[in-house]
Design a protein around this nucleic acid. Structure first.
Lengths: 212, 212
DNA sequence: GTTAGCATGTAAGGAGTTACATGATTTT
DNA sequence: AAAATCATGTAACTCCTTACATGCTAAC
């Protein structure tokens, strides 16, 4: 199973952890809230949901919504089309915790980081710190590369390339600062990241069309 | 042909426009300089090169590098492995110009924008302006979405989600400012974007591991 | 009355990554 | 002497997007 697919499963479990949802809504949330899945198609989502059901991590619950709370799934008798609402099972919750707690080098990547971060509220403080630090050092590597490159190229580049390079450098710098604030807040045991003054680019969030 | 593949072809033509290169180096440049192709594999690149040759946009030239300038392709007799150096044909140059000049809504997307921007030096001023403006309004849409969303959610979100949202918002704001500077510089006819003070996130550059 | 949005799916096809194969050369 | 890097390629497998099919409901 591809890393991307695993990430999708993780994200779905995370969203369902907040509250039960049906596919359509799930997709909307994934498209808007998480940067990684802008442009996720049903052709990806529904098969994924089926698999999660098969694994016993989620189950189909009824469509409570509109009229009569029939209680059983499949067809919401009265009103709109049968909405299949998915809910986490006990196993699903457990599996989600495992995933949230497992932070490796892959988690420092753009997409993974965003998803992990999105579920920080349900992640252990210790793991949060590890992820934030891993992410920071990843960005610092990048910064180092940019800098040596810009030294190496001295004058050789046209103005636009230079502007782009600069832009990237400053973005990375700001994100490092942002992370540093989060890290020190985390170290103080203060989850209250109220200020969040300096921010930046690569949380990938900029690439989102947030909550429509 | 997928949009992504077209973008790759565009990027390859653009890089070869600067100077002839062989596949291995081409890949390095794509992985580092252009954000869109971090993690491009040979399995994608070589087939792409073959197709470009087939279309008559590039051709295989000799591996001048090490020893004897044999002049003919295929095997660099003396030294290292036969390096196939690719070069643009006249048709290729023309086609590249066409692509560089064609700016539609797709060009406002993250990846496309980055690639287009990378070749701005060989793009008409008029087109540059159109792309920058398109990109800006795209980002402004996003900003509007973020803002209405954060109003809608008032208090409902945990601290991390809020921090993330904020971070995204500020990133987008900075990039808009960056674009604005570029746009006004462009309007003044001054290509000299010397200052580039305010920058930000989503040029996607932050997501790069620039020039190794 | 018609368009747009809600809601769930399937099938086909393309596209790209992964993994493998090979071998020279430079660095450690 | 080994390991890393240069250098080119192929094949299979997987995955995802695209497009289609269906039908209800709300808004215009």
């Amino acid at each position: 199973m591809s890393r991307r697919r695993e990430l999708l499963e993780f994200a779905v479990l995370g969203l369902l952890h907040e509250s039960p949802m049906h596919g359509y809504e799930l997709r909307k949330r994934l498209n808007t809230a998480l940067g990684a899945f802008r442009a996720l198609s049903y052709g990806s989502l529904y098969p994924c949901l089926r698999e999660l059901v098969g694994k016993g991590w989620i189950f189909e619950a009824s469509g409570e919504q509109t009229g009569l709370g029939s209680g059983i799934a499949e067809l919401a008798v009265g009103s709109r089309r049968a909405r299949i609402v998915y809910e986490l099972t006990a196993d699903g919750k457990e599996h989600f915790q495992d995933l949230a707690e497992s932070a490796g080098p892959a988690s420092w990547d753009d997409e993974e980081f965003d998803v992990h971060f999105a579920f920080f509220a349900r992640t252990q403080a210790e793991v949060r710190l590890r992820i934030l630090e891993g992410r920071r050092s990843r960005l610092e590597e990048r910064l180092a590369n940019i800098r040596t490159a810009s030294v190496r190229n001295r004058e050789r580049l046209d103005l636009y390339t230079t502007a782009l390079q600069r832009h990237g450098e400053e973005s990375a710098e700001r994100e490092v600062r942002w992370l540093e604030e989060l890290i020190s807040a985390e170290r103080r045991g203060i989850t209250g990241t109220t200020g969040t003054t300096g921010t930046t680019g690569t949380t990938g969030i900029t690439h989102n069309e947030p909550l429509a």
